[in-house]
Design a protein around this nucleic acid. Sequence first.
RNA 1: GGACCCGUAGCUCAGCGGUAGAGCGUUCGGCUUACAUCCGAAAGGUCAGAGGUUCGAGACCUCUCGGGUCCACCA
Length: 753
Amino acid sequence: MDKVYNANTIEDKWYQLWEKAGYFTPKIDKDKKALPAGRQAFSILLPLPNANDPMHMGHALFTIQDIMIRYHRMLGDPTLWLPGADHAGIETQFVFEKHLAKQGKSRFDFDRSTLYKLIWEFVEKNRAINRDQLKKLGFSLDWTRYHYSLEPEIVEKVMETFKKLHQDGLIYRGERIVNFCTKCGTAFSDLEIEYVERKDPLYYIKYGPFILATTRPETKFGDTAVAFHPGDKRYMKYLGQEIEIRGVNGPFKVKVVADEAIDPKFGTGIEKVTPGHDAMDFEIGQRHNLPIKKVINLNGRLNELAGKFAGMKVAEGRKAVFAAMEVLGLIDHVDENYLHNVATCYRCHTTIEPMVIPQWFIKMKPLAKAAIDAVKTGRTKIVPKKRFEKMYFDWLKNIRDWNISRQIVWGPRIPVWYCLNCNGEIKINFINKQSERINDTYRHLKDKYTFEEINAGLQSMMADKEASYQLSDGKCLKCHGTNILQETDTFDTWFLSGQWPLTTLGADFQYFYPTSVLDTLWDILFFWVAKMMILGLYVTGEVPFKVIHLHARVVDKFGQKMSKSKGNVIDPLEITQKYGADALRFALVMGVAPASDICLSEEKIVGMRNFTNKLWNIGRFIRMNMDAYKEQNISLTDFKNIKNTLKTEDKKISKYLDKLTKDVTKSIDNYHFGRAAEDLYTFIWHTLADKHLELVKDRLKNMDKKALVTLIHIYTTSLKLLHPFMPFITEEINQQINLWDSTPLIISPWPEN
RNA sequence: GGACCCGUAGCUCAGCGGUAGAGCGUUCGGCUUACAUCCGAAAGGUCAGAGGUUCGAGACCUCUCGGGUCCACCA
């Protein structure tokens, strides 16, 4: 054995060997006859990384899955770890737009299909890189089953689910208030917005007979009511009246309503209701049948309802309206230090504009029940239970309908068509010629239209007739006309990835579904895990996985989140090159309690690299002693034959090993990987190397065969136990020491316990 | 406004009701059939605080104080 362990060359060598030999591909025995008693197939779907994502520590944490996978493979279970990549709709388009911006361009410079093609090419470049990076870390993924969320077969299945949902009446196209980012030009689900605390002026304005507090005077043009709490006696006498309000564009009328949602202690206890531009107001509006007036366009500017303020952006509109009101004496006073939470786009941090736009929704309430029950009855277990089960239940219980339509290019378009014959002429309002967003679906209809125009057109169409969208391509189902137009919205990425367990298993679906474990960071419990549960149960009636194992994020040694701006990011590839993948893998796992933050520092990784060095040197020491026998042509017997005639210290270490085997097995079974790693570390370094090895040095010198055979047995067994954690170095050493068995560790049987 | 998690050695963290642990750091001493990426030893803790349950609590319960996270339509 070489004096120094060279991680880089050895790691690459072994990965290629394993992959070439096909060890990552499960041996499927359809009848499960070849399975050891009580065993079953074991499968994990890799949480699909974004295809355009360079590797970060989050990906390195896939180590946890590799540990489970390698462990089960050694147990003899047909084991599948399925890799893939996500097109990641808005994420990717956002990254690509930043890339465009560097070249002084924007998405508006391209028509839809060109833009799509450009993003496609952009992603393809990174997708291959991503795969190689995962290999560097030793992940034993079955690359023959790699999937990408935009593969035709996958998209097709996703569409089928949409169709099924539609047929079951669980899909609707609704004019509902949604979170709209005027910069990204798309709506977002409730999960995709971030609340930021901000200090803004709170204007106390004179409003007919009332004084009321608002942060948004510019939406005044969309007011259709004022509301107060039903228990509030101060305003009771106005209930039901139509009141004339003096405004900056002349007088207008609003209704007075009472609604539970109003907090009588806030401001003056009365609120102006703007159903078109505020989520709470929208709901008040629904309850009281208030008309919706839209005053802000999708480009974030006030429209013609704002009169002379039309064309202004929201922020300047606010100032201008305030100034005009002050002139008219409509301002009572202003609280300049009002602190509140403002919704922002999680991607670009632009303030979210609540808007009423037709969007596609899935009715979640009826679907959520099955997902709740599945966990309640234990068909799916959440680990750690204590911490995350409640979170899961709470979210599902209060679930709201899921907006699955995004106004972006990057992703499969929603498979519905509008018939222009049946629905009549589409009305086009020219709103903003400047920011023309060309849409290819409309190009065959003579002209180019803007994004706003299309939505305006669709909206008026929806208003004119009953929703008459269809799921058929080619011809109108009613009039058989071919003048049809596909929905321009694309699916929310999570609608596709939420079906990952349904779309990727192919011919082996029956064999591997439900999958065994889903391991992921808890931050996508709602985005992804819950969606898979819901859609998996809906389509198949069976849960998509038996266990949801949630781990925490990687933070730096001070417990701080890693971020570029803080400069505390540890790059897994750099580290791997420096210290080896095994060291990084072990550092990520060792001593970490379930679901607690993983503090990672270069010092810790160095410590684990030192452990690989220790491991290597024990090997060298043993090999050196073995070679002495080889020269004398004496074979070393099997440990089993001398087991009953051992000396005290050999018996002792042998006992310790049995305990270690039991403990490690139990810990892995219970998802206590940190514990297992710690036990292995302590045993190998302190028990085996520091104590036992020193103890038997004299005996080895005197060619005590039992001492050596015992040592070899203890060591090679430890290598097996350690293999799921540190696959490379254990495999290499095993090959150099274990001369009696040429089976690579990756498929060696797990030590009996 | 709801809920959750965490306060253990200088730092980062394990700890499974039964004599307080690891890594790094610190101090002292060591090139010994592998390893100085090492070996041997040592210092360092009222386990945040206060009550309670128990023969026994760092672990279980209640409250207080500190730190963090998630959810929620605060005009």
